[in-house]
Simulated assay, not measured.
Amino acid sequence: MASTTPPEVASRVESYIPRFVLTRLLNQDQAGRRISLLGTIDSQPAVLLAERAAFATDHAHLSAFPTSLTRIRNLGANDIYSWFLANSGATKANPDNDIPPDFKLNLIYPCTEKHIKKYSAQPLRVVTETPEIYAAYTRPWIVRQREKGTLQWIFNIIEGRTEQEDVIYRESGDEGFLLLPDLNWDRKTLTSLHLLGLVVRRDIWSVRDLTKDKTEWLRHMRDKLLDATVKLYPDIEKDQLKLYIHYQPTYHHFHIHVIHVALESGATQAVGKALGLEHIISQLETMAGGPEAGFHNVSLTYGLGEASELWEKVFGVLKQGGQVKIADF
């Protein structure tokens, strides 16, 4: 970006940065991508805010990006998913220095068309899924997604084949669950902590399958997930944690996200995407009806990308007054 600052002013202020002498770190936010530093320049106090610049998006730079990375260190691998820490190419000139990694990488290989659509830029829509739409179209679509075998990586964890060294807490039995780091967390920055609670049972696919008779189970899980988190990370207190559930979830096997309250809200915490666990428990407790009353009886409003299957095959079709073809799921 071209500067509009007069050259003599630009030269003067640019000279300030190398003269900045650090006093202390004031803050670290955006999951560690931005820092606020207190220091001095020529004995006068100064605050320096540093944020990672945007990626160059031209083809030449993007093509060179993977080969420019150094010190690639795997954090875990499960089925088609693996995740890493790495250093940028700028560290090649100092290979012996102990420089912290400046990239967190997630790799999906081989990926599916669904992955490509999920991570592509696309217009967004807000839809309202009534109980009737859920029963007639969304649930059959979910059944089809599960039949495609996309949950194998979840079952690998639950059945003890992968990532067992990462399990923070486990309860066995039909109503058991386990807690482990989410693959999007660097496992180091506490203010961006992100853990995942996975249930063992396979008959609960999403919030839609929660009924009043599961309230005590949800409350028990909430308490145990909080206890296990603060036990492992004693610098965090329970009231610094948020627990929520996605709808629609990325994968249809019931799970609970546990994050630090300081983790800045993005698309995954947006209204209509993230449902607070406390709110879910309260709503179930006050819901009219018997033990079988639940979220399958309510309308849920959430966002969808226009490239998602649910928009292309269900909600987009319904908007145009067309007939949803379940056989195409």
Rank of each mutant, 00 (worst) to 15 (best):
V199Y: 01
D209G: 12
L310E: 06
N184A: 15
E171M: 11
S120Y: 13
L49C: 06
A2E: 07
E129Y: 03
E163Q: 11
E129D: 13
S82K: 02
G149H: 05
L124G: 03
A121V: 10
P6S: 15
V207W: 02
E132W: 01
L284G: 00
W153S: 05
S282N: 10
S15C: 03
I154S: 01
N87W: 08
A293Y: 09
L241N: 02
W153I: 07
R161G: 02
E264S: 11
P249D: 15
N74L: 09
L277P: 01
A86F: 10
R33L: 12
L318T: 03
A50I: 15
S299R: 15
H252Q: 08
L75E: 13
N156M: 08
V298Q: 15
I204D: 01
I236Y: 02
L105R: 11
A228K: 00
L25W: 15
G149Y: 02
Y109S: 13
K273T: 12
A64M: 13
L198P: 00
E264P: 03
R52W: 06
D166T: 05
Y251L: 11
F55K: 14
P234T: 07
W311Q: 08
I72P: 00
W205E: 14
E175A: 14
R71P: 00
D239F: 10
A77H: 00
N97F: 09
L218Q: 03
G322E: 04
K319C: 07
V258W: 00
P249R: 12
L183N: 00
S63Y: 04
E51K: 15
R202G: 04
A60T: 15
L26T: 05
R219F: 06
E285T: 09
S11R: 03
A262C: 07
F55Y: 05
V126M: 14
K242W: 10
P234S: 10
I116Q: 09
T215A: 10
L180F: 06
G276F: 14
I154V: 13
V261Q: 12
Q269V: 02
I80N: 09
I35T: 08
V271A: 06
I35C: 09
L180H: 03
I41G: 03
Y247L: 06
F103S: 00
F155N: 04
K325Y: 13
L193C: 08
D182C: 12
K313P: 02
L193R: 02
T138V: 15
L310A: 09
Q145R: 09
G160W: 07
R202W: 02
R73F: 13
A60N: 14
R139H: 12
P7M: 15
L263M: 06
Q152D: 10
W311L: 10
S88I: 07
A93Y: 14
T250H: 03
D98T: 04
D209V: 11
K212Y: 09
D209K: 10
W185H: 01
S88N: 06
Y244I: 07
N78I: 13
